[in-house]
Amino acid sequence: MRTKTRNTRTAVAATAVLGLLALSGCGAAETGKSNDAGDKKTVKLTVPSWVGAQANTAVAAYLLEKELGYTVKTQQMGEVLAWDALSKGDIDGILEDWGHPKEEKQYVDTKKTVVKGGDLGVTGHIGWFVPKYFADKHPDVTDWKNLNKYADEFKTAESGDKGEILEGSPDYVTNDDAIIKNLKLNLKTNYSGSEASQITAMKKYAKAKKPFLTYWWTPQWLNAEIDMVEVKLPAYKEGCDADPKKVACAYPNTPLQKFFNADFAKNGGKAAEFLKNFTWTTEQQNEVALMIADEKLSPEAAAEKWVKANESTWKTWMPKK
C-alpha cells in the first residue's frame, strides 16, 4: 500500500517537473547569439593551433581594433570544429585554411552558409624533409629513389628494421603510408600525435646532428631555426592523389585560403571588406610568426611591432571610404 502511494507521488512529481520544463522551453530558442555586443561591433576570429595562422589572426585583430574600432573576440579551436562554428556564425572568419574538401563541399556548396574569401597570399607546401646538415653530407638523399639506401640511418626503436619517417599532428593530411607502400620504400611512419611533440623531437635531433626524415611543411617558424631540405618525390599531377590508397606522388602547392560566414561576408561592413583585402606574403607572415615563437613575444605585441614597421602594406587592406 505504502509503495503504491509513493509511486503515485513520484509520478506526480515527475510529471510536474517535466511540465515545468516544457513550459519554460515552449518558446523556440535563438539559433545564434546576436552579432553586436552593445553599440560596438564585434568580429569573432578563430585562433588555430599553429603559429603562422596565429600571426594572421593577431595582425588582423590588431588592425580591426586599433584602426577600425571593432572589438575582436578570438577563440581557439581545432580546424574542423572551426569550420562548423563558421557555418553557425559562432565565428566570422577563418584566415588560413590548408584545404578541407569535405567541409568545403558541405558548407560552401550545399548549405551555402560559408563563402570563399580569396587567397591569403601565402602558399603552403607539405613534403618530406631532411635536415640540411645531413643533405650536405649525402647530397643524393634528396631524391626519393635513394631513400632506401639511407633507411638504416633513419632507424629508431619504433621503426624496427626499417627507416623512420616522423609524422605530425593528426590535424594535417598525410598520404605517407600509401606513398611508402606504392613506392616500395623501406620506411615506416611514426605518428608523433601533436605538432609540439614533432617539433621537440626535431629540435633534439638537430642539436645532436643526428639524421632524420620527417613529414614537414612550409611556411613554418622552425625552418628559420633548423635548415631543412626537401626530398623530391615523384612530381605532383592533378588528380594523382584522388584515391588515397594509390597515391605515389608529392603533395601539391596549396595557396592558403580565407573563408567567411556567409552572413558576415554580406553584412559585415568594413570589417568584412578589410578581411577580404587582407593578404600578405610568406616572408611577412614568417616575420610575425618568428616574433611569437622565437622571441616569445605575445601575439598582440608581435602584431603591434609588425604593424608599426609595415604601414604601406596594411594601408592597402583598409576599406575605401
Binding site: E79, W83, D84, P170, D171, Y191, G193, S194, A196, S197
Partner: peptide, 20 residues
C-alpha cells in the same frame, strides 16, 4: 599517449576529433 607517439587507439581518438 597518442599525443606523444603512442599511436594506436589514442591517436585514432585524437584524429577523430581533429579531422571531424
Amino acid at each position: 599517449g597518442g599525443l606523444v607517439g603512442g599511436g594506436a587507439l589514442g591517436y585514432d581518438v585524437v584524429k577523430g576529433l581533429s579531422r571531424g
